[in-house]
Design a binder for these strands. Structure first.
Lengths: 196, 196
DNA sequence: TCAAGATTTTACCGATTGGTACACAGGAGC
DNA sequence: GCTCCTGTGTACCAATCGGTAAAATCTTGA
C-alpha cells in the first residue's frame, strides 16, 4: 500500500469537523478512520492518547486560531471599535455564517463537559476578558463593558443554537447584524438607560 | 421481589434529567436503569421503542409544559407585557437559574440532531411565534417584534451555554435581568434607533 | 544495497452498547 | 383455589466501542 505520510496538523480540520458534527462520544474511531482515510494504527501513531488527545489537539488549534485572530486584536488592536467590528466578521466567517457549530459551546452542553471543563472555561473567559477590555477602551464603563461582553458572547452562542435548531443559518447573520449595530452605537446613546 | 408498579409518567423527570446531564447517546441503558431503579425489562415494558421512545416521551412532556406555562400565556394572556415578564420568571425557574441545561438546545447541537430535528424545530418555532405575537400586542412593530423575539431566544440559549461553560450559574440570572429591562422598556424608547 | 525509522494494515482484546426472550412475581377478578 | 394481566429480573445476543500488538510496508539516509 502507498504511504500516505499524513501530517498530524492536516488531520485536525477533519477531526474538528467530525467532533462538531457528532460530538466527542459519538465520533467513533470507525467514523474517524473513515473520514480521515486512516486506520486505527495510524491514528494511534499520531495520537497515542487516543480520542482524548485528538480532541485536545483540536481544541488547541481552535484556541490558537481565536487567540491570534480575535482575542489579541481585541486586547491590543490600536482601534478598539475596529477590533470589535472585525471580531464579528471573523466570527461570521469562522462559523460559516451559521452553518457551522461552535465545538467549544457544544462540548459545554454535552455529556463530556467534565472532561474538557477547564479548557472550555478558559476559552470563554479569554474571549470575555478580551472583548470587555476592548469595549472599555472604546469608552464603555467597566460595568457596561462587562455586561455587554457577556451579552455578546451569549448572543453568538445562542444564535448558533437557534440557527441549527431552526435549520436556518441566516438567523445567525441577522442576529450578528443587530449585534453589530448595538456595539457600534457606542456608550454615548446607551448610558442613559438604567442598569437596574 | 416487590412490585414497584412504577408509572410511566413518573419516569419522565429522571429520564429528562439524565438526558440533560449526559445527552442522548451517552445516557446508556445501564445508567438509566441505575437512576430509575428499573431493569431493562421494566424499561422496555414502558417504552417498547427503547431509548428513542424515552427521549420522545421526555420531549413530549417538555413541549406540554412550555405550551401550557409559556406559549399559551404569551399568545392568549390578556396583558402581553405581563405574559412576557412571567415568561422570564418561568424560564428562570425551569432552568434552575442557570444550573440546568436546555435539553432541546443541547440536542440541537448534539450528534443526535437529525433524529429529533423536527421536534427541536417545532419547539423553538412555537416559542418564537408566541413571543413575537406577544411583543406585537405590546406595541412593537411586526419587524421589531420578530427581531426581538429571536434575540430573546438566542440570549436565553446562549446564557445557558455560557453559564455551563464558565461554571457560573449566576451569569444566567444577570443576562435574564438585562433582557427583562430591554423587554419591559417597550417599543417607545427604542423605535428611534435605526434598524440598519 | 541495506539497515533504521516512520507509517500502515490487520487481527485481536475485553468491555459495553441497545435490544430481545423468557421465566417469574404479584395483585385483581372469579 | 385459579387464571389473567401487568410488571420485573435475568440471561443472553450480535454489534460496536476504544484501545493494543505486531507484522508488513514504505521512505530515507548512509
Amino acid at each position: 500500500m502507498a504511504k500516505r505520510v499524513a501530517e498530524r496538523t492536516e488531520l485536525l480540520p477533519p477531526l474538528a469537523e467530525l467532533f462538531r458534527e457528532y460530538g466527542f462520544e459519538a465520533a467513533s474511531l470507525a467514523l474517524i478512520g473513515e473520514r480521515t482515510g486512516l486506520g486505527k494504527g495510524s491514528l494511534y501513531h499520531f495520537f497515542p492518547g487516543g480520542k482524548e488527545e485528538m480532541a485536545n489537539a483540536v481544541l488547541d488549534e481552535i484556541d490558537g486560531w481565536f487567540e491570534h485572530e480575535v482575542f489579541r486584536p481585541l486586547r491590543e488592536g490600536p482601534d478598539p471599535n475596529r477590533a470589535v467590528a472585525e471580531m464579528l466578521v471573523a466570527v461570521d466567517a469562522y462559523f460559516r455564517s451559521g452553518r457551522r457549530v461552535c465545538l467549544v459551546g457544544a462540548l459545554a452542553l454535552a455529556e463530556t463537559r467534565n472532561r474538557f471543563a477547564e479548557r472550555i472555561k478558559a476559552y470563554f473567559a479569554d474571549w470575555d476578558r478580551a472583548l470587555a477590555r476592548a469595549l472599555e477602551r472604546a469608552g464603555w464603563s467597566p460595568e457596561e463593558a462587562a455586561a455587554l461582553s457577556r451579552e455578546t458572547l451569549a448572543l453568538i452562542q445562542g444564535a448558533l443554537v437557534l440557527a441549527r435548531a431552526l435549520d436556518d443559518p441566516e438567523i445567525f447573520g441577522r442576529l450578528l447584524a443587530n449585534l453589530k449595530v448595538r456595539l457600534a452605537l457606542g456608550p454615548a446613546q446607551s448610558s442613559s438607560r438604567g442598569q437596574g
